[in-house]
Simulated assay, not measured.
Amino acid sequence: MAAVAPGPSGSFHYEFETLKGYFAQSEDSTDDSQFDFIREEFGLIGRKYDTDTDAGRDKGQWGRFERFVRDLNEKSGESEAVKVLFLGRHGQGWHNVAESKYGTKNWDCYWSMLDGADGMVWSDAVLTEVGQGQAKDVHGLWQQLLPKGIPPPETYYVSPMTRTIETADLSFKGLALPHGKPYRPYIKEVGLNSP
């Protein structure tokens, strides 16, 4: 859930909290080092909702969850909203390979300051074959869940780094998305001082 409050100079300040009881990875009992979001189909917990009706049973777990979230938003206060965020990290890039090769301490102190070395380029690193495969696995998951009623994202935000754009494209391009909900990413750079 997100709450919005006016910040300095007309900006907005957002406060977020995770609502427990809906996704396995948000539960204290889930070991995040062992959690596999692909195998767990994004971790949506099979459960009943206050908004379930006999007519809604055919919508499946994802459709019922979507109706529940929409109902929560209708009942939320003026400065509150419930959002479902699918946050993804880019697939393995050459900078990840270099950090593994040189070690994190050496990477942080020296190697990361270079554009590349030893036949690798990590300045605005592209995905490795492993990283491309990881993004294609995400594509496969969406492909599997869309017919089961998972609501597609309404908005896609991607950083301007090549590896993130490549990951997003491999994850979402070519999916059978509903009419009016195309994959059209917003490329947005967010820094520490960004509003």
Score class of each variant (00 low, 15 high):
residue 152 P to D: 00
residue 135 A to Y: 06
residue 194 S to L: 02
residue 72 L to R: 08
residue 159 S to V: 04
residue 140 G to H: 04
residue 147 P to I: 04
residue 107 W to S: 12
residue 2 A to W: 08
residue 39 R to Y: 10
residue 128 T to P: 04
residue 116 G to I: 06
residue 102 Y to R: 15
residue 59 K to D: 13
residue 97 V to D: 03
residue 117 A to V: 04
residue 13 H to W: 05
residue 57 R to K: 14
residue 18 T to W: 10
residue 48 K to C: 12
residue 78 E to W: 06
residue 9 S to E: 09
residue 31 D to P: 02
residue 131 G to A: 06
residue 179 H to N: 14
residue 57 R to P: 03
residue 57 R to Y: 06
residue 31 D to G: 04
residue 103 G to N: 12
residue 93 G to I: 03
residue 129 E to K: 11
residue 68 F to H: 14
residue 106 N to I: 13
residue 76 S to L: 03
residue 18 T to Q: 10
residue 59 K to E: 12
residue 68 F to L: 01
residue 194 S to D: 04
residue 88 G to C: 13
residue 27 E to N: 07
residue 88 G to F: 15
residue 99 E to D: 12
residue 36 D to F: 05
residue 2 A to M: 14
residue 18 T to L: 09
residue 193 N to G: 04
residue 57 R to E: 15
residue 83 K to G: 09
residue 94 W to K: 11
residue 156 Y to K: 05
residue 56 G to T: 06
residue 6 P to T: 07
residue 11 S to C: 10
residue 37 F to S: 02
residue 156 Y to D: 02
residue 54 D to G: 01
residue 69 V to D: 03
residue 75 K to I: 03
residue 45 I to A: 02
residue 153 P to N: 13
residue 63 G to A: 05
residue 143 Q to D: 15
residue 53 T to H: 03
residue 129 E to Y: 06
residue 176 A to R: 13
residue 80 E to P: 04
residue 124 D to G: 09
residue 79 S to I: 08
residue 166 E to P: 00
residue 87 L to G: 09
residue 33 S to N: 14
residue 115 D to E: 12
residue 49 Y to E: 00
residue 79 S to Y: 11
residue 79 S to K: 15
residue 76 S to M: 09
residue 71 D to N: 13
residue 134 Q to N: 07
residue 112 S to D: 01
residue 71 D to M: 11
residue 100 S to E: 15
residue 4 V to I: 14
residue 167 T to F: 09
residue 81 A to Q: 08
residue 49 Y to L: 01
residue 70 R to V: 10
residue 10 G to P: 06
residue 107 W to C: 10
residue 93 G to Y: 02
residue 13 H to I: 12
residue 182 P to L: 13
residue 48 K to N: 12
residue 66 E to D: 11
residue 124 D to K: 15
residue 29 S to L: 03
residue 158 V to F: 11
residue 193 N to S: 11
residue 22 Y to G: 02
residue 142 W to T: 03
residue 107 W to N: 10
residue 125 A to L: 06
residue 99 E to C: 14
residue 33 S to A: 13
residue 43 G to L: 00
residue 63 G to H: 05
residue 110 Y to L: 14
residue 114 L to K: 14
residue 140 G to C: 05
residue 49 Y to H: 03
residue 128 T to C: 02
residue 93 G to Q: 03
residue 148 K to W: 11
residue 188 K to I: 09
residue 178 P to G: 13
residue 121 V to P: 02
residue 4 V to P: 07
residue 83 K to P: 01
residue 37 F to G: 02
residue 33 S to D: 15
residue 39 R to A: 09
residue 98 A to C: 09
residue 147 P to A: 07
residue 89 R to I: 06
residue 1 M to N: 10
residue 192 L to W: 15
residue 32 D to N: 15
residue 130 V to D: 08
residue 192 L to Y: 14
residue 32 D to R: 14
residue 142 W to K: 06
residue 10 G to C: 00
residue 37 F to I: 00
residue 178 P to A: 11
residue 89 R to G: 07
residue 195 P to G: 12
residue 179 H to K: 15
residue 157 Y to Q: 05
residue 61 Q to H: 08
residue 141 L to P: 05
residue 108 D to E: 15
residue 95 H to M: 04
residue 77 G to W: 05
residue 140 G to Q: 07
residue 161 M to C: 12
residue 127 L to F: 10
residue 123 S to I: 00
residue 47 R to A: 05
residue 97 V to Q: 07
residue 105 K to C: 07
residue 120 M to T: 07
